[in-house]
Design a protein around this nucleic acid. Structure first.
Lengths: 212, 212
DNA sequence: AATAAATACGACCGGTCGTTCTTATTTCCG
DNA sequence: CGGAAATAAGAACGACCGGTCGTATTTATT
């Protein structure tokens, strides 16, 4: 288990490339992303990228994986620090809106952008995106179900439907915040979830005043 | 006001080209759309396209306009045949979901696809898309406001917020129906709106059983 | 019948795309 | 110190890109 300076350097390069690729993909698309463009932004030669990924497609797949990791670190992980139930659901939504508002990625949301880009383009990239989305959807439903089990949401709640509605509020925020007024958009996304949860949750103290 | 057979032929070609362009753009994107590809699908020469649009960008703009017209014909117009108020809101949403479910466009929704594609790409195309989206958003708010004025929705309702929520249900349907289970997706989109309106509307007879 | 306009075509331009091949530099290991 | 492995660069490829040009065909006008 000795640390190899060669692969360490390669790893550093790889993550730097993938972070840039995630960001760039939200601007020009995961397919529109060109290797020359990516190499230039990194100050690297185009053929240098082929030393790490044998094809553009494998780089695209790695980019999707990197975006998943970034999403887990910046949105899922903070939410998991909130207590289970409606508060965690709200924390997740807030982390998501905050991610968009902080303009971490120029295109807003890597997944919203790429999933629309590939929804009619069969192939490995689309499959990878669909799988990531499926896992996200399942995760959301799990959080809703936990809130039901804690008695913070009605027992007869349509769990997948509420998960659908919560995600819809977020996707819409990603889209509208880049085309219409961002502040109004974020307010709607936040207020929409808050109203929804408050109408369903018997304990109003769990959903106190909003942050700002 | 004599009918000119030359321009008539040109018009026929133009609309045929634009219809194909709208459809193709939902597959490969409005930017990813290549003139050679489009020409080949139409059985037309590439240079023939330049006889009608002087550049790719002007064809993209015309494609957006054509998509707007298609949207108005297939979704807005049928909804306007329903009586004002919550029934019209529901009819609009149903027409939209029906449009996605009928797979009129392979990518589901021209606007969802292209607006995500261009949300970080300044230029005339993005401006045109943003304007179309803004008008759609305003239209949705007007329909909600009409329902309030008719007493079918509470007077103190946050009109833009409900419009945001309704559109969010639709956008999400466009995305999920192509990556996850379409039938479940449409059910969520429909039930989500129905629950929302029923909870707000004092007259339950206005929102009777769903179609299927 | 002759002219002008609208429409469409095939050939071709410079440029960029993803990809491959060869070569050079850095770093670990014996 | 020297060979092997990993990482990078450079040059070149065939394919496709948006776009231009000259020309042919169809149609309306005179």
């Amino acid at each position: 288990m000795t640390s190899d300076g060669r692969v360490a350097r390669g790893d550093r390069t790889r993550t730097a490339v993938l972070d840039t690729a995630v960001s760039l993909a939200t601007e020009v698309g995961l397919d529109g992303l060109s290797l020359a463009q990516l190499a230039e932004r990194l100050g690297v030669s185009k053929s240098g990228l082929f030393a790490h990924w044998r094809s553009k497609e494998s780089l695209q797949l790695a980019t999707v994986d990197r975006a998943v990791t970034q999403w887990e670190e910046l949105i899922v992980a903070p939410a998991l620090r909130a207590p289970r139930g409606v508060r965690r659901l709200r924390a997740l939504h807030e982390a998501r809106i905050g991610f968009y508002a902080a303009r971490v990625l120029p295109g807003g949301c890597f997944f919203a952008n790429t999933e629309f880009e590939y929804n009619a383009r069969p192939g490995p990239v689309r499959d990878r995106l669909a799988e990531a989305f499926s896992r996200w959807s399942t995760f959301l439903e799990r959080l809703v179900r936990e809130a039901v089990e804690l008695g913070e949401l009605p027992a007869d709640l349509d769990v997948p439907l509420l998960a659908y509605e919560i995600d819809a509020l977020g996707i819409s925020a990603a889209m509208r915040s880049r085309l219409l007024d961002p502040d109004i958009t974020y307010r709607h996304a936040r207020q929409g979830l808050l109203n929804r949860l408050r109408a369903l949750c018997p304990d109003p103290t769990l959903l106190a005043e909003g942050p700002s």
